[in-house]
Amino acid sequence: MKPAPFDYVVAASPREAVQYLADVEDASAKIIAGGQSLMPLLALRLARPSLLVDINRIPGLETIERISETTIRIGTLVRHRMLCAQTNSPLLHEAARWIGHSAIRTRGTIGGSLAHADPAAELPIVAVATGMVIEVMGPSTQRTVDAQDFFIGTLENSLADDEMIVSVISPLPERWGFAEYTRRHGDFGLVTVAAAEVQGEVKIAVGGVGSKPVRMLESEGLVNDSVTLSGQLIDQAARAAAASVEPNGDFHGSARYRIGLVEELVRRSLRQLGSGQADSEVDWS
């Protein structure tokens, strides 16, 4: 289908973009970044904004900047392709590789992915596991939101109608693991797990089992309370994760199947976190 009519403006700065959002009375203005989630919604007429505010030409938002030994700042317009290419964060490199296809990664942005808040999307899961901090601007405000509080539910974030993401502060984990299962390369994961150790504390976030990335608190406790990450402890943490989730089944996989995936993928991501090495990748040939 074709999108319904809308007006279109190009913003020159974040402040101008949020002013455009604020000036539309019925809050029916939308930001367009990579368009890789919004354009399908427009085409299917699941979204019918009266105004699109294009932020792609705002200078300075497409950069990754090292702000300390252990943190980077990522501009909202940094494309998935650029996350694949950067070397500051090996975890973000690995996660971004799993997003869609080359043509999607050309345009899709980190800010768009976080704002879109798809519970199976890779970047929100990494954001929660690493404790990213999202830098947000409104017409007269500026604030930060912890990733943990940013996601409210399926496709629902905690931004006001006239706020936008400008950048994210991303801690660089000392150790990490990432594991995802998809039926076809490039599809959204059935279950996706990111485990990250930041300043000595391990967090584990799982996607595909709820309306937003879900923390595995019991498994985290087991790992954080123990000095060494033995195989036995990893198994225990994986079983605790599986016991804690209540996914819905759908035609992609039953609830039991997803629970099985949670156990196995938590196990793999913790093994990788412990050893620095991923389990060998699936051979698609």
Partner: peptide
């Protein structure tokens, strides 16, 4: 290809 990189032409607005 848009500026040398692949894109879905159905997911880009002509004005962009």
């Amino acid at each position: 290809m848009l500026d040398g990189l692949p894109v879905r032409a159905c997911l880009v607005l002509a004005v962009q």
